[in-house]
């Protein structure tokens, strides 16, 4: 079995054996979005205006919080060490692990987002843009955040530090992601903005795993 397939299989198995890791970010996403009407107002006009930002920020935080455990479990049991001494480039196993992580934590967010958009009074025709922008945006968030997770894997209690490192890096994705939904709400065309999100995703997926691999090596002391 190729390294990519073997790693993908292992990560998916691990995810299915510990379902809490999949469900918790999803719950977090749903709970945070439902807090906003309580904190602000149940008025549809206000909520509709704020919905793109609220859903996007909640999704971003859910992705970020899921990342702290991305490499930590493997680091604690020594499996990360075995990954680092493996012959060959780390690109493929790292990419496989990020793919699996997104499938388990990012994809559910994309799937549940239209429901949350509906609950925050987004018009039905805007919901398409919402899930499309999240589909392009959340994998980029996973890859960019993984760089921070790799750099902080040797730091005990690195959660807050991870946020400090990663949140500024998330700004472009957030701006274009929430911006695309905002434009759709104003009835403007969004394909150009989605294209920019796609470009960011392409950049993140092509270069990101190299940075993650380098970060893991640095954290191991190389």
């Amino acid at each position: 079995m190729s390294v990519f397939a073997a790693t993908l299989r292992r990560e998916l198995l691990l995810g299915l054996r510990t379902p809490a890791e999949i469900i918790n970010p999803l719950f977090f996403f749903v709970v945070v979005v439902s807090l906003f009407p309580l904190a602000l107002t149940p008025s549809p006009e206000t909520l509709r205006l704020l919905a793109p930002g609220v859903v996007w920020v909640a999704a971003l935080l859910a992705v970020m919080l899921s990342l702290d455990s991305l490499f930590r479990r493997d680091e604690e049991c020594g499996a990360l060490e075995q990954l680092l001494v493996a012959p060959g480039e780390l690109y493929l196993p790292v990419l496989a692990r990020l793919c699996a992580h997104w499938l388990l934590t990012g994809l559910p967010l994309v799937l549940v987002a239209p429901l949350l958009g509906y609950m925050t009074y987004l018009p039905v025709e805007v919901l398409d843009t919402l899930w499309q922008s999240l589909l392009l945006g959340t994998p980029a968030l996973t890859v960019i955040g993984a760089i921070g997770a790799a750099l902080t894997v040797s730091v005990r209690r690195g959660g807050i530090l991870l946020a400090l490192l990663v949140l500024p890096l998330y700004v472009p994705v957030l701006v274009f992601g929430a911006g695309s939904v905002g434009r759709a709400l104003d009835g403007m065309e969004v394909s150009s903005v989605l294209a920019v999100l796609g470009a960011i995703l392409a950049l993140a997926v092509s270069l990101g795993p190299f940075a993650v691999a380098l970060g893991l090596r640095i954290s191991s002391g190389d």
Partner: peptide, 9 residues
């Protein structure tokens, strides 16, 4: 000195 095994597998 760590076994490198995940407990869930």
């Amino acid at each position: 000195h760590l076994a490198g095994l995940r407990e869930e597998l």
